[in-house]
C-alpha cells in the first residue's frame, strides 16, 4: 500500500557517480549531440520568428533569406502604439486591446475551471460512489467533441441567452477546453496523496472539508501550478470559439495575429512581433511556477 517515493536528486547523484566510473564521456557526448539536435529543431523556428520581427518587409521576403540585416523595432512600435510608415498601415492598432481581451478571458477561464474542477477532481479521487468512473469518463469525453460540431449550435444558443460577444459567455465556452483536462489531471494528483495522511487527520476530528482545505489542497499545490500553466496555454491559444462567439468587444489575440494577413500583403514583421509579445505572458507564468511544473507533474499526473 505504501507508495514510496525517493527524492529525485539522491537517485540522480548516485547515477552520476556510477557513470563517472565507467562511460561518462561517451554518454556525455551522445547527450550533447542528442540535445543539440533536438533543441536546434525546437528553437530555430523561434529564432527565425524573432529575427523576422526585427526585419522590415523587404528583408522578410528577400530571396535567399537574409541573416544579416539592420534590425528595426518598427514592427513592435507599429503594433503597440501605432506608427505611420506607410499610409495604409497607420490604422490605429487593435493589438493591445486584443491582448487585454485574451488576458481577461484566459485568466478567468482558468480561475473558474479551478473553482469547479478542484472539488470535482477531489471527490472523484477520494470517495467511492456509484457511477464514479462513468462520471469521470463523461468529464473527459467533453474534450472529444470537435469544436466545429458545437460551435454553430452554440452560436445560436449564445445569441438567445445574450451571451454573444460577452466575456462571460466566452469564459463559459472555454471551459470545454480547460475543465476536462484540469479535472482529469488533478484527479491523479489527489489520488497520489497517501490515504494515511488524510485518515490521520480525519481521526483528529477534521471533516472531509477540513481535510481537503488544510491537508490535501496544500499538498497538490505543485500539481495545480502545472495544470494552471497548461490550461492557461490552451485557453490563450484558442481561436475558433472566440471568433464565432465573440465580436469586436471580445476578439482575442489569435485573431489579432491572423489579422496581419491583409488584402494587399501580409505584414510578416508585425505578425512575428505580435507572436513574440503574445508568448510573453505565458512565458512569465511558466517561469514563475517553473520549479513546480516538473515537480507537479511528477507528483501526481501519473502514478509510477
Amino acid at each position: 500500500m505504501f507508495r514510496i517515493r525517493k527524492i529525485f536528486d539522491e537517485t540522480m547523484e548516485q547515477d552520476v557517480d556510477e557513470m563517472k566510473k565507467s562511460k561518462i564521456k561517451l554518454t556525455g557526448i551522445l547527450r550533447v549531440i542528442g540535445l543539440s539536435a533536438y533543441f536546434t529543431f525546437a528553437l530555430t523556428p523561434i529564432i527565425w520568428i524573432l529575427m523576422m520581427s526585427l526585419k522590415n518587409h523587404n528583408d522578410v521576403i528577400a530571396t535567399p533569406p537574409k541573416f544579416i540585416f539592420t534590425p528595426t523595432i518598427e514592427n513592435y512600435k507599429a503594433i503597440t502604439v501605432g506608427m505611420k510608415s506607410y499610409a495604409f498601415e497607420s490604422v490605429r492598432p487593435d493589438f493591445p486591446k486584443y491582448f487585454l481581451n485574451t488576458f481577461i478571458i484566459a485568466s478567468f477561464t482558468v480561475i473558474v475551471s479551478l473553482f469547479l474542477g478542484t472539488i470535482a477532481a477531489y471527490s472523484l479521487a477520494r470517495f467511492s460512489f456509484r457511477f464514479k468512473e462513468d462520471i469521470a469518463f463523461t468529464f473527459l469525453s467533453f474534450r472529444f467533441a470537435p469544436e466545429l460540431m458545437v460551435i454553430l449550435p452554440l452560436y445560436v444558443v449564445f445569441q438567445k441567452m445574450h451571451l454573444y460577444d460577452t466575456f462571460v459567455g466566452l469564459i463559459l465556452a472555454y471551459q470545454l477546453i480547460t475543465l476536462p483536462f484540469l479535472i482529469w489531471v488533478l484527479r491523479g494528483f489527489f489520488e497520489e496523496i497517501p490515504r494515511e495522511i488524510e485518515q490521520a487527520a480525519r481521526v483528529d476530528g477534521y471533516t472531509w472539508w477540513g481535510v481537503f482545505r488544510r491537508i490535501s489542497l496544500p499538498l497538490v499545490k505543485p500539481g495545480i501550478a502545472a495544470v494552471v500553466v497548461l490550461s492557461f496555454i490552451f485557453a490563450w491559444n484558442n481561436f475558433i470559439f472566440a471568433m464565432i462567439l465573440g465580436s469586436e468587444r471580445t476578439q482575442p489575440i489569435t485573431l489579432g495575429i491572423l489579422g496581419f494577413i491583409g488584402y494587399e500583403r501580409v505584414l510578416w514583421g508585425q505578425m512575428a512581433a505580435a507572436t513574440i509579445i503574445c508568448v510573453i505572458p505565458e512565458l512569465l507564468l511558466a517561469f514563475f511556477v517553473q520549479k513546480y511544473i516538473i515537480r507537479g507533474l511528477t507528483f501526481g499526473a501519473v502514478k509510477g
Binding site: D94, Y155, V156, M243, I244, S247, L255, G262, Y263
Partner: peptide, 20 residues
C-alpha cells in the same frame, strides 16, 4: 462599431451571422 477580420475568417464569421 467595426470588426475587421482577415478574409478567410471574415467569411466564416459572416455566414454564421447571416444564417442565424
Amino acid at each position: 462599431k467595426t470588426l475587421l477580420l482577415s478574409e478567410e475568417e471574415y467569411f466564416e464569421k459572416l455566414i454564421t451571422e447571416l444564417s442565424s
